[in-house]
Design a protein around this nucleic acid. Structure first.
Lengths: 333, 333
DNA sequence: CTGAAAGCGCTTACAG
DNA sequence: CTGAAAGCGCTTACAG
């Protein structure tokens, strides 16, 4: 592998000049630049990142703390954050606090050894007290995505969970449903409470009775919750599931009981994971704009790192309803 | 941040001694080691990875080429490879050849700038001709996971797709089914052909008629394929789906048509993704031992990198049947 | 607009 | 068992 010296020798200039060309510094004459670029091509030269990092004292490296629980949400978030990082020429180190055999002290070692410039805490990572304390102590800038305790962080990115919950319920109300149940996500999660509150507000405003059943985010918990809902004296004609996985479970349960979706039961979800478009009927849901979340997180974090752009506080990205095939007006009886 | 010099000064030894302690070199007296370790703790010292890499000329960095299409398989593979890499104290750079706005030349830049020690090509990455040529040209060692053209690579890790396909079909045959259909994965994929061949062999051996329908790996394609199968004059009593997503689609289609699973239709899948355990009925399937695949890939690749362990060729990991709730004997008629 | 020199934080022969 | 010195491949003031 050739070095900057080789390039300088071949182009008959000093290494400073080569460096200037590589880093697109202004003030290099056109001819010299051409000359250097030719030498770089000829020698198939690529700057050594380790040397650059060492000298610059900056790693252009971000840590993404993401429990790889294989949830579609986490997967989608990861893909988007990776793309955004690369777009800004930053590398990404993924840290999985749930990985077997990797104690948190080891994760901390990685952050320190690599001289990480900044970190992104993805749910539920945003609430690992130990990690947060560690980052603060080491003056590593970080962004928290959808944390449970927003006020603990000076920079968070969140979505409009409450408004989304309201919109989901309101959509079913507008279709004419009066018996609308809500299957909540894990009640310990802040976003779960927010979505529930949105549902509550819509139902109260419409003067409709609430039917609330607690789930735990998985397909199977949605299945179980829906089954229990069907056993009630006056079962719901529509169900708002706190996330798409549980909506899938709900559809499965309905079909299992011989109920047609959406004919006998309307189902609406939240998140818009990949499955939602693939399942039949295709799921009507509240879109969580993960791509935008990823963009905001990275751009704001890099702004902070590179320019120390004052206070940022809390960024909120709006959700929106996407209508597909799983909801219709209730049958008259 | 303190440096090795600071530690040496505080411990009143030379930096060479500190280095020896950090790298667990033999031949440091017990007392000196204790002394140095205390200084490291006191100063909260962490070695600078960039400096180490620069000096050693090795990056201890692996590239994982993985299209983040958000398939459960890809997600699971990623989680396992990440964990394995960290276990061996290697970092991982994830390259997504499908990422929007990231031309392949940029991926190649990353590999070269970081002086990657080795690469892992995950499906369908194992067949990117341009990338392969690039890696070979730059003498970057790499492992191909389940490639379409095994012979092009000198080191591959694969699973027993054919035996797995055979086992799936044989299991249904043993239950007493005689009308067993197979929904294939994308026929352009080598593993898809292998699974199909396994099915063929089992059916031929049993003297049973084959029913083959082509799918394209997704839930929706499984749904569509199953629907078309149900329309046949003598519809199948059991379906072997080429992967679990299509098995989910099959179950959805069966329920949609008012057929009970497994009562009216037995369904078996392939892969054992997370959903398979969560769906109701829980899916009987052929387990693809991803954790073992990840372990073999990393260990063999690192062996190659660190010791240049001769020829490796093709490693094959066995699949196995896991019986859950989606298959029973056919009804007598 | 270009060059010579110092130094980032380590590791690695080489002495002793 | 420990130390002094060179150097990995860059960037960055500083001259000119």
């Amino acid at each position: 592998m050739s070095t900057i010296k080789d390039v300088a020798a071949r182009a008959r200039v000093s290494i400073k000049t080569v460096s200037s060309v590589i880093n697109h510094e202004p003030g290099v004459s056109e001819g010299t630049r051409r000359n250097v670029e030719a030498a770089i091509r000829d020698l198939d030269y690529a700057p050594n990142v380790s040397a650059q990092r060492l000298k610059r004292g900056r790693s252009e490296l971000l840590a993404l703390v993401l429990p790889l629980v294989q949830s579609p949400y986490a997967t989608k978030l990861f893909a988007n954050i990776l793309a955004e990082s690369h777009r800004h020429h930053y590398s990404l180190v993924v840290l999985d606090p749930h990985a077997p055999g990797t104690p948190s002290s080891e994760l901390e070692q990685i952050v320190r050894n690599h001289r990480i410039d900044g970190a992104i805490l993805a749910p539920p990572g945003a609430d690992y007290a130990r990690l947060i304390a560690f980052l603060k102590k080491n003056h590593v800038l970080y962004a928290a995505i959808a944390p449970n305790n927003p006020d603990e962080h000076y920079f968070t990115v969140d979505i409009t969970d409450r408004a989304g919950g309201f919109e989901a319920a309101q959509y079913l109300i507008d279709l004419g449903h009066t018996r609308i149940a809500h299957i909540t996500c894990l009640s310990t999660e802040y976003f779960s409470q927010e979505r529930l509150t949105g549902y509550r507000e819509a139902m109260e405003q419409a003067g409709l009775p609430m039917m609330i059943c607690e789930g735990s985010n998985t397909i199977e918990s949605g299945f179980a919750a829906a089954m229990s809902l069907f056993q009630q004296d006056t079962p719901p004609t529509a169900i708002f599931a706190g996330n798409d996985e549980m909506a899938v479970g709900t559809i499965l349960a309905a079909l299992h009981m011989g109920r047609h979706v959406p004919g006998d039961l309307s189902v609406i979800g939240f998140d818009d994971i990949l499955i939602s478009q693939q399942i039949r009927p295709r799921l009507t849901t509240i879109v969580q704009p993960i791509q935008e979340v990823a963009r905001m997180v990275i751009e704001t974090l890099l702004g902070l790192i590179e320019c120390n752009t004052g206070e940022v506080n809390h960024i909120v990205i709006p959700t929106r309803l996407v209508v597909r095939d799983s909801c219709v007006a209730p049958k008259l009886k």
